[in-house]
């Protein structure tokens, strides 16, 4: 073993990650790891690790409860958003991040997201969209694509009987006031996703209003896909329905983008 120990390079993890809890609890190939890597890099770059509070929701996203070297709260069913709102109101100097999946944010916790967004609360919400309820075994979620097979739609989702997928960022952009930041990124383009998350955090630090980033994420376990099919679904199928890009960015945020 001595020969291995002569050179001991460290894994290239973001500084804000908690190394002693790695490898993390997510499945092999899970998109959460990539989204949280971008979030960690954004926190590192803004140098705000000491004043961030991270809230994770129910679902697979709760497996990030010990992910960061950051104060973390875990709540249920979308209530991460109001808990973070309360924290932000009590301690405005903190940077609060609500992290959730599409089940917690768009289905059972949609009311919290809608009300926090329409009130213009000064928090950041990062939402990972993997088109189904992953932790319970891959049932149909509001974001399941038409024709997509899940546990509860074995013949593919039929919009006639089960409706159309939920367009989260478009909805949030429609109900928020000027100054909000709303974007949809994808784990297929990590540099872009990191810049969106960073801008969402900067928007909160500047006190301009609600910041929301949805990340298209992968779930090889419940999609039952291999690596090639996973990338294909994230890169080809999902952006057909969920358009990637900045949906609402205030003039100030756009100026920041031009400056650097």
């Amino acid at each position: 073993m001595e020969a291995v120990r002569t050179e001991m390079p460290a894994p290239a993890m973001p500084r804000s990650w908690r190394v002693d809890t790695k490898p993390h609890k997510f499945c092999p190939g899970c998109g959460h790891g990539l989204v949280l890597k971008c979030l960690g890099q954004a926190i590192d770059e803004l140098n705000i690790q000491g004043r961030v509070v991270f809230g994770c929701d129910i679902g697979c996203s709760l497996l990030s409860w010990d992910f960061f070297n950051i104060d973390t709260i875990q709540t249920h069913h979308g209530r991460t958003t109001p808990v973070m709102v309360g924290l932000k109101r009590a301690r405005p100097e903190l940077v609060t991040i609500a992290y959730m999946g599409d089940g917690g944010g768009y289905a059972i916790g949609a009311q919290h997201l809608v009300n926090a967004a329409s009130r213009g609360e000064n928090i950041t919400v990062v939402l990972a969209n993997n088109t189904q309820y992953a932790m319970t075994g891959g049932q149909m979620a509001p974001t399941t694509l038409p024709g997509q097979k899940t546990e509860t739609t074995p013949y593919g989702r039929e919009p006639e009987t089960t409706g159309y997928p939920f367009m989260g960022p478009e909805m949030v952009a429609a109900i928020t006031r000027e100054g909000a930041y709303v974007a949809r990124g994808s784990v297929a383009n990590l540099r872009q996703l990191k810049s969106y998350i960073k801008k969402a955090l900067e928007n909160q630090i500047a006190g301009r209003g609600f910041s929301f980033v949805e990340a298209l994420s992968g779930c090889p376990t419940n999609w039952r896909t291999n690596a090639a099919e996973t990338w294909d679904f994230i890169e080809e199928e999902m952006p057909n329905y969920f358009k990637v890009g900045e949906i609402k960015a205030s003039a100030a945020a756009k100026k920041g983008e031009e400056d650097g």
């Binding site: 390079p9 460290a10 894994p11 290239a12 993890m13 990650w17 790695k22 490898p23 993390h24 997510f26 190939g29 899970c30 998109g31 959460h32 790891g33 990539l34 890597k37 890099q41 990590l190």
Partner: peptide
């Protein structure tokens, strides 16, 4: 590969001695 690894299990360094991107 280093960037897309969800677990940060890969580290790539160029021979110039510099650490790879990010």
């Amino acid at each position: 590969c280093q960037n897309v690894c969800p677990d940060c299990a890969i580290l790539v360094r160029k021979k110039t001695g510099k650490v790879g991107p990010n």
